[in-house]
Amino acid sequence: MELADYRREYLQGGLRRNDLPDTPLALFETWMQQAIAAGLPDPTAMVVATVDERGQPYQRIVLLKQVDEQGFVFYTNMGSRKAAHLNHNPRISLLFPWHPLERQVHITGQVEKLAATEVMKYFASRPKDSQIGAWVSKQSSRISARGLLEAKFLEMKQKFASGEVPLPSFWGGFRVKFDAVEFWQGGANRLHDRFVYQREQDGWTISRLAP
C-alpha cells in the first residue's frame, strides 16, 4: 500500500464556538479528563519542541506532571539537550496528540525554571527506582552500551539501599507559561474544527482557524 493512499474519515464529532469556555485551561482540563476516561495510553504524554542556537528544531515526548493557570509543568535532567536549548531560547511548543479521540492540543509560550522547593517536593513523590534512575543517566550524552547504564543503576541502587535518595543537583523542571492554545477536533471531509485562544492583556481572544 502506498502511504499516499492511506486515509480515514474523522467522524467522532465537531467543536463549535458556542461550546467553548472563556479560558483555554477549562477546555484543556475537560479534554484531559476525557482522554484519561477513554483509556488512552499515556494521555499526559506531550511532544516538546525546542530550537538550538543554529535554529534547528528538535522534538521529543515528555510527560506532563502538573497544569494550572500558572502553566504546564514537566521535569528533566538540566544537563539535557532540551534544557540547553531552553537556556538559550526559552520559547517552547507543546503538542498533545490524542489520535483515538481525533483531537490535538497545541500550546506555545516560554519556560521558567521551577523553584528548588517545588522540584524537591515532586522528586520525593517519585518511586525510589525512578529517583535512582535520575542519578544514572547523563541525559543526551553518548554512551557505548546499555550495559553501562544497567551497571550504574545497580551501583546506585546499592548505594541508596538503606536510605533516602537525595535530589541530584542536575535535575529540575520547567513551567511553560502559555500565551496561545489551539484545539483541533477532526471533522468529516477534512473540514476539521480548529480554535485558538490567544492571551491578551485583559483575557483571551478566541479565533476559528481554517482546517
Rank of each mutant, 00 (worst) to 15 (best):
E2H: 11
A4I: 13
Y6T: 09
R8L: 09
Q12L: 15
G13P: 02
G14I: 07
L15Y: 06
N18C: 10
D22L: 15
L25V: 15
A26P: 14
E29G: 08
T30V: 08
M32V: 08
A35Q: 02
I36D: 08
A38R: 09
V48Q: 03
T50W: 01
V51R: 00
D52W: 04
R54P: 05
R54A: 13
R54Q: 15
P57Y: 08
P57H: 04
Y58H: 10
Q59I: 12
Q59G: 14
R60W: 03
R60D: 05
V62F: 06
L63D: 09
K65W: 01
D68L: 04
E69Y: 01
F74V: 02
T76A: 03
G79P: 00
S80D: 03
R81Y: 14
A83R: 07
A83Q: 06
N87S: 12
P90F: 12
S93L: 11
P97I: 13
H99D: 14
H99Y: 14
P100Y: 10
P100T: 13
L101K: 06
Q110W: 12
K113N: 08
L114C: 06
L114K: 01
A115Y: 09
T117A: 11
T117S: 09
K121N: 12
K121S: 14
R126C: 08
P127A: 07
A134N: 05
A134L: 06
V136G: 00
Q139W: 04
Q139V: 03
A145D: 04
G147L: 13
L148Q: 02
E150C: 08
K152Q: 10
F153I: 02
F153H: 03
L154F: 11
Q158H: 07
K159F: 12
S162M: 12
S162H: 15
G163S: 13
V165R: 02
L167R: 08
P168T: 00
S169N: 10
W171S: 00
G173M: 00
V176P: 03
D179P: 08
F183N: 03
Q185S: 06
L191N: 05
D193W: 00
R194I: 04
F195M: 09
V196G: 03
V196S: 00
Q198P: 02
R199V: 06
D202K: 13
D202W: 12
G203A: 07
W204D: 04
W204Q: 04
W204A: 04
W204F: 07
S207F: 07
R208E: 12
A210K: 13
